[in-house]
Amino acid sequence: MTAFDLLRFEDWTNPVPPADREVVSLLPEEDDGRPPLLFVPGLGHGAWAFAEHWLPHAAGRGFPAHALTPRPGGDLRAQVHDVVQTAASLPRQAVLIGHGVGALVVARALGRYPARAAVLAAPVLGGWSALGSALRANPGGTLPALVGGRLSLSARQLFQSGPPALTAEQITGYLSRLDPKPRAELLRRATPPRPVGDAPVLVIGSPDDRVVARPALDRAAAAYSGAPLMFPGMGHDLMLEASWAEPIDAILDWLTKQIK
């Protein structure tokens, strides 16, 4: 656990400049006071990845649901800033749900904003381990990025092949919307900050994820003194997979228990 963070010279002397933020929101028919959810996508993904299934599903279960697209060209600090700004703009204390690198952003944002709860889904907290996995699963798409070229993510990396499986058109459609622009700072080793407030944190993932290896998942959960909730058979993009309903239902069930 890192120390209390009282002296914030970076924020005081060099505040992150404002930017237009794309937030996709779906509100439930009736607001019965449940905390709003803020979904934070990972590398190459945007709010659309959650708008596909998880947003309508969460709103259907009575949760105001929002998803934020990372600002173009923003570094990690700017992304954290955007999450905290968006969360603070919601009428009630928000639940932060980050996927992939978005989970790293959420882990950082927890040091700045007392979330009602937080969920780290298939979290990429350590860049090196994710890079290792990516080189194994998709060397052709990953290697060019190491020498300054383009990073391309492959279907094999993000989605599982066995039933129930996505159709080829779905996969092509998703892959064509991905625009991953990795930054070297993702490889910097840094302990996530001490969360402010008392947010319970849930880590979920899949043992068959080809981006986040099992040990990385266990480490992430241990950092928040828990064990990961597992969805065997699913690929990295839990929210786009054919069995997308299982993880979001588990998240909402957990949340319902936490906010009692």
Partner: peptide
């Protein structure tokens, strides 16, 4: 430190903005 003012606000907000900030803080955390 854990509930920033909107980053689109001016560098030196007006007192009425500070009040709305405090009202939102109170509502946000119930």
């Amino acid at each position: 430190p854990d509930f920033p003012m909107p980053d689109t606000w001016p560098d030196y907000p007006h007192h009425s903005q500070v009040l709305s900030y405090l009202e939102r803080y109170a509502a946000h955390f119930r």
